[in-house]
Design a protein around this nucleic acid. Sequence first.
DNA 1: CAGATGCTGGACAATCTGTACAGTCAGGAG
DNA 2: CTCCTGACTGTACAGATTGTCCAGCATCTG
Lengths: 181, 181
Amino acid sequence: MPIDELDGRLIELFTAEPRVGVLEASRRLGVARGTVQARLDRLSRDGVIAGYGPEIDPAALGYAVTAFVTLQLRQAGGHDPVAKRLAQVPEVIEAHTITGPGDMLCRVVARSNTDLQRVIDVLVDVAGVERASSVISLATQVAYRTLPLVRASARRAGRTGGTRPGEGGADGAKPGERPPG
Amino acid sequence: MPIDELDGRLIELFTAEPRVGVLEASRRLGVARGTVQARLDRLSRDGVIAGYGPEIDPAALGYAVTAFVTLQLRQAGGHDPVAKRLAQVPEVIEAHTITGPGDMLCRVVARSNTDLQRVIDVLVDVAGVERASSVISLATQVAYRTLPLVRASARRAGRTGGTRPGEGGADGAKPGERPPG
DNA sequence: CAGATGCTGGACAATCTGTACAGTCAGGAG
DNA sequence: CTCCTGACTGTACAGATTGTCCAGCATCTG
């Protein structure tokens, strides 16, 4: 939770170039390899870094259409059974229970607008779903991102300066080295 | 785009255990290392795998509240200038132009409900934004995922069986090996 | 049939990772 | 003021992995 400036730079680096590796990162950031390793371990342990899985682009898979579907549920039964059914639909990429007039908000993808109709029909068919109203995403103006958040968090939390006893060395932190990739 | 069954298993494996590496993956999947490498290259080149960046959890950073804000824009001016402003707000995690009564749908995060009020105020202050109506995510029933989609795509696309001239070897594809981590 | 493509099995040098350890430095406790 | 703790640096070493290349073989296409 207390992200410091080095953590921020670390995340930034790994977001920009995920394949750099610990050693290369230590060189780029000008810190010892052990430090990078320790930071990464801590960030993972604290849950800030949830994982490193490959990011799959549904569009590249042929699911060109994204839509947000608001579901209204029958009062009886609750959300969980519905959520369980929704989870079985591959096209449901994400689902939240929400405040307001609707009960659940789902992000779904489909191969085309025609295909979207099919997907929506599947959702409406789920037991407990009363109505569904959907809006189609025409364009993604801001793609999912967390970096600005990381930067903001890193800035506010103090602990900015680290220990700088010396420079140079064999294993890590060679200042003038040009990175390979 | 034409995801095959091996591609599917590959993505599945890397999603479950992102740190396995190419060599280990080749062992697990029972194919040659070069094959894994080639598949991964192709998936990246085709854009199916968009990247391997670390997944940051906003909640772990202190942004516990997620909300979906629908913006209505002034007719004149268009979406792009607004999107540009939105992109400058760290708390705006994602933004789409949409069909329907609203004009844009934004996913925003905040430190608390009180903080959310501040964020919404920022959005409403953006030039071109006429009104904002928001729903708060109470719970995430289905967390963002793409794996089911991958599986579905892998199943439908043919090319299921590959060339199987021989088994066993030194560099890759040792069947009975127990993976380290 | 020839060519292109994809996979296997193998090899090598260069690099990186996991891990460990001693020394330095800053901040807090006594 | 001194001691202790936590974080970082600088090193070291063995083992594993990566990038890259190559030849052989099978399938698909023209």
